[in-house]
Write a protein that binds this DNA or RNA. Structure first.
Length: 112
DNA sequence: CGACTTATCCGTCAGGCCTA
DNA sequence: TAGGCCTGACGGATAAGTCG
């Protein structure tokens, strides 16, 4: 398990503005498909435009939803790797301390 | 057993970074 | 510089744990 090099965390300079938005109960893929499946044959240009905006928004949200899932998956993996590395280093440290103790012992007995 | 707290997951927004 | 991607921050939902 190695920590991939392209995964970096950086602080963002967000001004703590609470993120509020309308939550549509039927947002997501199904909604996008419904939107795409209804051709704007008998619609005014303005309602077509509104529908296009809605469709674009749905696509954007869907992509971001998936991106967030992937981002969280990568973060979990990254944390797991760090934890593994901590365990390995702790073991190494313990071994080195033991080794040092043994060498000190040998040295002390020689000195006598 | 209901009220409250804590942990975890998820969707969304905002903003930074990168590329065409 | 517009558009897309990535990710921190936020708030809601839900499960699990705790307490009176």
């Amino acid at each position: 398990c190695t920590i991939s090099g392209d995964f970096t965390f950086f602080p963002t300079a967000t001004g703590d503005i609470p993120a509020y938005q309308l939550r549509s109960p039927n947002s997501g893929l199904a909604q996008s498909i419904v939107m795409a499946a209804s051709p704007g044959s008998m619609q005014s240009p303005s309602s077509q435009h509104a529908e296009e905006i809605t469709r674009k928004r749905e696509v954007r949200l869907m992509k971001n939803r998936e991106a967030a899932r992937e981002c969280r998956r990568k973060k979990k993996e990254y944390v797991k790797c760090l934890e593994n590395r901590v365990a390995v280093l702790e073991n190494q440290n313990k071994t080195l301390i033991e080794e040092l103790k043994a060498l000190k012992d040998i040295y002390c007995h020689k000195a006598e």
